[in-house]
Design a protein around this nucleic acid. Structure first.
Lengths: 247, 247
DNA sequence: CGACGCCTTGAAGGCGCTCAATCAACGTGG
DNA sequence: CCACGTTGATTGAGCGCCTTCAAGGCGTCG
């Protein structure tokens, strides 16, 4: 897969179009956005807390994560972003970053200047709404993570997490059958779930021996979707995915 | 304090003005917003998950909370909202609610029709940005709660929570000295922190006996701000409060 | 005064953490 | 080709934070 600037804008268009149809002017405006593509190694910072960026990023390939550290150095991953996501769209209106963003595995990201995005929003109010909506869906996912981490035990949390990931990756057609590529270490997963890597490992083994998943070498296969959903207490409402068009 | 419709709009204006100055047209447009005021008893739902509201609410007096339940009935409070906040601004662009909102104690809230907000946004792009920004700050607070719940122990979590609350209430001038009114039960607090009410009680006692706070009967006084900040590992960056003007 | 809500306290147990060692897979350089 | 270092997955033992389950205290209000 070649991830160049035009691929970046087409990813964005595809995502926005899953919500409402874009006019040809709107599409053209998006296609004309200048995007600078960069390749990243694993665990590499893209932006850092305290920065005052003048651009937003779009994930093109691989995964990125939003994270924060406690003063004693413990890391919490606050969000995982998949191709098509814009992890720091917020920086358009919040001057100083309250988070850091890093690559999980090797990945490609595109950068778009704030100026360009602001100009496009001025001229196309519906795109403003669409971008705003993107940040609202992000917030909704943050909320669900609070519930997940705050109220469920580790087994359930991981199940829930995997359910979410499957659905989000399905939305960008990155799932074959019920399996997807997940180049992420157990330690990284643990940071996202809010447990230690040791315990993450034991939970994974439990999920495997219960026949819910098969996970090896950067790949995850959901073997029993129904039970995983149940164990994870998962309801996709909060993802605000467009229902498959019935009309 | 009388909380009528004009009080509601003046609260909103005050909050937006803490970020950037509003023109007189913008202020007038906000003042002209029709607001319907309602009085609520404690623990009363305002909107419920799955709803498709046609209006947003503004907190006028007291506290409201955003919450979600697990399937086995455990409640996680995802956010606390203070006067001036708009807990469900998101519903402007996300049709179906992924959360429930309820009063914590007795409180007053105002309701504003989506139509009115949309119209005002069309005519005043800077207000669009301001409202968008509000939702982004909410998201930032959600993120910090994930870190708090995911990585810190109960003692530290509660300290952090109290620090946040103090700063947010100071921003709306609801703090005298270092004390504020907090009509909330330990069980409700526990739901916000992600621990049980039993343990919440013990943590409170520890904070008291350590001389950090004094909490009785719906009131909290911060006795040692410096140490509370330290124990809570608190950095207000994520609140995106406007710095006190130095110019 | 009794009922109710909330705070408080005790005891026991479990989930997840810490610390540490081992194993497996892989890339590198000699 | 193999020794070696590195990185990530795995396993074990012990412990501690927090939960669960109860019961009791205390203030408020009908």
């Amino acid at each position: 897969m070649v991830a160049d600037a035009s691929y970046a804008t087409s990813l964005m268009i595809q995502k926005l179009e899953s919500i409402f149809s874009l006019s040809s002017e709107e599409k053209q405006a998006l296609q004309d956005l200048p995007v600078q593509v960069e390749v990243l190694k694993p665990e590499q910072d893209i932006v850092r807390i305290g920065d005052q960026p003048s651009q937003c990023c779009v994930v093109l390939e691989g995964f990125t994560c939003v994270y924060k550290l406690t003063s004693d150095g413990k890391r919490q991953i606050l969000a995982l972003h998949v191709p098509g996501d814009m992890p720091d769209l917020q920086s358009l209106h919040l001057q100083v970053l309250d988070i850091s963003i890093a690559s999980i595995s090797s990945c490609k990201v595109g950068f778009i200047q704030h100026d360009c995005l602001r100009r496009i929003c001025e001229r196309h109010p519906r795109l403003t709404a669409a971008f705003w909506r993107e940040t609202l869906v992000d917030a909704s996912i943050y909320r669900d993570w609070i519930l997940n981490i705050g109220q469920r035990d580790a087994y359930s949390r991981v199940a829930h997490f995997l359910c979410e990931l499957l659905m989000r990756l399905q939305a960008v057609r990155a799932v074959k059958g019920k399996a997807f590529h997940l180049p992420i270490t157990q330690a990284q997963l643990a940071d996202a779930i809010g447990i230690t890597s040791v315990h993450m490992n034991r939970v994974f083994q439990a999920l495997r021996s219960d026949g819910l998943i098969d996970a090896t070498r950067g790949k995850v296969a959901i073997l029993d979707w129904e039970r995983l959903r149940e164990e994870g207490d998962f309801d996709p409402l909060y993802l605000h995915l467009r229902k498959p068009r019935s009309a």
